[in-house]
């Protein structure tokens, strides 16, 4: 067998692939959509939380701290909900157990920080950026999707407490559900 025939066959494959459409996108400018149910950042709906602490108990890494007080009506009232995202495994256990579907996951992936303390997030301080501008999409809790207990609309969306300096990408797309945003941490 003539030496070099194998190499030629390989070159033919390369040549044929040169005429295929590119399968990559130019990432920071173009973005692919994540599948629904992607386990990314978090969104917390304070009004629906019943402070049952099931999410905190399900978490393998003690990421979640639920602070609650017993009110005069003997019911638990949420006084604080904190997450230390540097320890989060993004396993989704907290979302799976939540009975009211108030903690959900979004398709936010830009959760990188240069400073550990900025990954400690308080959900009810009001300093979280407007979720409509930050990759808010119909967050999915697949285990509960069947029961129809859909979140009533975004309240908070996790963002490292560092100043969100990046402006949302092309305006029109910002509110489009399921579209990733250009935010950076």
């Amino acid at each position: 067998m003539a030496y070099g025939r194998g190499a030629l066959r390989g070159l033919r494959v390369t040549f044929r692939n040169m005429f295929r459409r590119p399968i990559t996108v130019r990432y920071p400018f173009e973005k692919l959509k994540f599948a629904p149910g992607f386990r990314g950042g978090f969104r917390f709906d304070r009004d629906r939380c019943i402070a049952c602490s099931q999410c905190a108990n399900a978490c393998p890494n003690n990421v979640i701290t639920v602070k609650a007080q017993r009110g005069e009506d003997k019911k638990l009232h949420l006084t604080g909900y904190e997450m230390d995202l540097q320890y989060c495994l993004f396993c989704g256990y907290c979302v799976e157990v939540c009975p009211t579907n108030c903690i959900t996951m979004t398709d936010q992936v830009a959760l990188v920080a240069t400073d550990r303390s900025s990954l400690w997030v308080e959900f009810d301080k009001g300093e979280l950026p407007d979720p409509a501008k930050h990759g808010a999409h119909a967050a999915v809790n697949p285990l509960r999707a069947a029961t129809g207990a859909k979140p009533q609309g975004p309240v908070g969306n996790v963002q490292p407490v560092q100043p969100p300096h990046a402006a949302p990408a092309a305006g029109g797309q910002a509110a489009q559900p399921g579209h990733r945003e250009g935010e950076q941490a």
């Binding site: 030496y3 194998g6 066959r9």
Partner: peptide, 8 residues
């Protein structure tokens, strides 16, 4: 074609 058959 690209790898297995390559003589090198």
């Amino acid at each position: 074609n690209v790898l297995t058959g390559n003589e090198i």
